[in-house]
Design a protein around this nucleic acid. Sequence first.
DNA 1: CACGCTAGGTAAATTTATGT
DNA 2: ACATAAATTTACCTAGCGTG
Length: 336
Amino acid sequence: MSDPSGRLYYKNNRVKQLRAFCYTAQTGSISRAAERLFLSQPSVSLQIQALERELEITLFERRGPKITLTPDGKALYELALPLVDGIDALPARFAERYQTLQSGRLDIAAGESSTLYLIPDLLKNYMDRYPDSPVKLHNLVSADMLSALRNDEVDFAIGSMLDLPDDVAYRAVYSFDTSLILPFGHHLAGKERIELDDLASEELILPPKHLTTWRLVNLVLQQHNIPYEVRLEVGGWEIMKAYVERGFGIGIASNICITGREDLVVKPLPSVFPRRTYGVMWRRGRFLSPQAKRFIELMQPGFFDDPGASPQAEPRGDNRVFVPSGSPAAKPQSSS
DNA sequence: CACGCTAGGTAAATTTATGT
DNA sequence: ACATAAATTTACCTAGCGTG
């Protein structure tokens, strides 16, 4: 009764038939096979009949109460046994793999600041608690971070994002002010309150142009018509601090990188430099792995508590995305 | 007697129809 | 589009029958 339309009904369980057949061939008895399969004898008998009918071959020679494998039956048995074994071993094999998934790797994308100043303590905590879960830190700039999120190359990202695409969810967890960092003895170091104008014609040290901070500083200073000169462009906060310490110029840095161990003067900047928030980003709709959730819970206990873990939830009243109105730099650079 | 086969009934799975 | 209800199909069981 093979379907002339060629349509495959999944209820026509060929594997079940083959399993019944293989067991019968092995034991040389339908009843015996039925026992092993926890089925009734007729059930197995029917399975074999169906198989014979559908394949249009005879598998067993029925001679009274005895059955013997025909040559066709022998041939099919050799073909069928690996299939049945393969299917039946599937749960075990999957469990094997699932095990490695459970203690599976945690992939975190993060920018330099997060990697350097935010993640170490978190990671220490995480690894103390879950020593068997390996972690990979993907040190990426924000554009690469987005594509890593979109391609599911990472579980989530930690960082700060100026303009957020629709397909990525963000929740701020930390926020930091921006400060001016000066070498000791700099003429601004003794000043009570730093104004924006004070920055004019100072010799600035800034992080590279492709990083968010550069854009931010550039934006703020241009908007307020503060002329400035970049004396030195450096690769990161640590380098910037080192060069400020040695008197190459002054730097504008997010407080995230101020550890208190620096050998320099830190002055708060006027509030035109917005607080930057740092938090968690993930591809909208992504199912977060258990280990990812555990890590995020360490960052912010209760992160997943509110129903639906709404990505829209406001982060502790911070201004989370800095989008200056009417600025060309605020246009999101879409990568599609 | 031991074993496989057929029949008739039941529970579960699956599809179709219907409502929100 | 999704959820629920009704109808149909399928898988299986027990019981009884036939055969070497």
